[in-house]
Write a protein that binds this DNA or RNA. Structure first.
Lengths: 206, 206
DNA sequence: GATTATTTTGGACACCTGTCCAGTAAAATT
DNA sequence: AATTTTACTGGACAGGTGTCCAAAATAATC
């Protein structure tokens, strides 16, 4: 075995190790999310998360710096997945009108299906107003969502500058949050109300 | 002294007592707000608030049911004042265009002046997604703000139905929150960016 | 199969939490 | 001035918090 081979093998081993570690981190994060989405950031203790993961509390600190690191990882993981799902819709070959309809319908569906998870995002976003430790992840996720809207506008043949995308994102976000809240308090019609309201606004804005 | 007089006097005494109690409650709430706006709901303990008020912890429980009751009272008190201030603007005799400009300018000013207090509202609003104990106060305040927008639309000679007002409120709220967050993370231009963006959207919507 | 390296445990640590209440001080009423 | 009501105190209570670490279990490497 040459020296080069040796180095390469060591490097591959290191990669395999960090890949395994990354997988375990994600596995823990997924369990953590199921705990967090039920109680929210402040009310969920590391012991709750550990119990949910079937793991000792110390193990969490073995994989995550501290609580903030853990929650940041979870929210990032969830939201990245969400943006990817929405992006898949933007990339379909639909005509502009049908695309908008599908996009909004998917958001409404997400209120129904993932209400509890989405509220975790709003929770963390509010925390960022008090705790600088959350600023980065919130900024990053919000930027990713605005970028998604940029791509949407582009597909619609609309001017897709940052300012326009940001404004549209805020409209979508406000309506989403509002109807999410309604839905969580028992208003089962909130998702379709969301769809109706946003559809109307889309027509006006675009 | 007739029997009637006696009853009346007792009733006046009762009123005076409850008025005094109400005054003290508000005084405590004002101190509580200064604590809460610095740390947020979850991080502020009753001991923090008691210390800020120069009072023992037990005293807080003498005036408020529990922590949720106290925070609800504080947020309600603050937001009612805010809506009243904005309402004063709506009630001026300005022409529609000038009125809109003044209204938005006042919101931008409030980002600058009351950033820390406003974030408390967003904090509590998020909590309401997890804790039903906050649902009522959030619903009430949000309804008050939509009602404010109804009056604004009315003054502008616009159709002032609930749906339109709600949509406009959500646009204002989303932009307000977004730029408030930016401002809190050190972007001093956020308030004027808010003004520019919302002004542009107002033109489009109205 | 022995020896490192990694992963996991479970409990100790120091501190903070909201709630409650017997006792005291102050104010109001008679 | 005596008595009753109201206001307030300060500490006890039971439980929870994130963090840390020595020791044990497991896995990887030679």
């Amino acid at each position: 075995m040459t020296k080069i081979d040796k180095i390469e093998r060591l490097s591959q081993q290191a990669d395999a190790k960090s890949a395994k570690r990354a997988r375990k981190k994600q596995e823990l994060a997924d369990h953590a999310i199921t705990a967090l989405k039920q109680l929210g950031y402040a009310r969920t203790s590391l012991r709750d998360i550990a119990a949910m993961s079937g793991v000792a509390v110390g193990t969490l600190h073995y994989y995550f710096e501290d609580k903030v690191d853990l929650i940041g990882f979870c929210v990032r993981r969830y939201k990245v997945g969400f943006v990817a799902q929405m992006d898949a819709i933007v990339r379909t070959g639909d005509a502009p009108d049908a695309l908008v309809a599908r996009f909004i319908k998917r958001l409404a569906l997400s209120i129904r299906r993932d209400a509890e998870t989405h509220r975790l995002w709003y929770d963390v976003r509010s925390q960022a107003m008090f705790d600088p430790a959350f600023e980065e992840v919130v900024f990053e996720i919000e930027a990713a969502m605005i970028a998604l809207v940029v791509r949407l506008l582009d597909r619609l043949g609309q001017p897709a500058d940052q300012a326009r995308a940001q404004a549209l994102y805020l409209i979508l976000d406000a309506a989403f949050r509002f109807h999410l809240q309604r839905y969580l308090t028992g208003d089962m019609d909130a998702p379709s109300a969301f769809e109706a309201q946003v559809s109307a606004q889309f027509v006006a804005v675009i």
